[in-house]
Amino acid sequence: MSRTTVTWTARLTILLAAVLLGIGLVAPCMRIVPHFGAYDSWVRLLRPSMGRTSEYSVLSGILTMIEQRHLGVGLVLLFFSCVFPTLKLAVMAWGVESLARGKRTGPLLQMAHHTGKFSMLDVLVLALIVIAIKGLPGSTEVQLGWGVWMFATSVVLSLLASILLHRLEQTRAADSSAIAA
């Protein structure tokens, strides 16, 4: 694959990842269908509000958590699920453009490489929430929404972009060595 092809693939991958990340943050990712075991009918009769199906996106779930005064956990999740992936994609976009123009990438991109492993943390958190709620008694169901797939695809694309960026860096280093020689 030529350097130009890799550059364009990286650009498109980052832009697509950004679009999917935006959708993934606000699209329905989790639908909680409460059940109350043998008492299901009674609970629905006496407290219909408890039987309502709730649908959350990543962002609305985090904001609900903050509203319910779980500020610390909420802010950590907000950073690692929303702010950090966006900044990481922005830094990678910066790096791709810099490398495309034969520039050095600088320490910011190195940091993005090192912190890349944290990008899976949000997926892990989602998985933990699902497992935790699936463990509730009364056959309460947690159904995953299409937002999860958007979000997960964005994470995979950002990993792919990271690989492409690394390849661009290697190409640039090889070019620099050839010029020096």
């Binding site: 650009r11 980052i14 832009l15 950004a18 679009v19 990340l21 935006g22 943050l25 966006t86 900044l87 994609l89 922005a90 830094v91 976009a93 910066w94 791709v96 453009e97």
Partner: peptide, 10 residues
Amino acid sequence: MAAAVIGIVA
């Protein structure tokens, strides 16, 4: 390009 990425998500 970096600003565009942030802009898309935001």
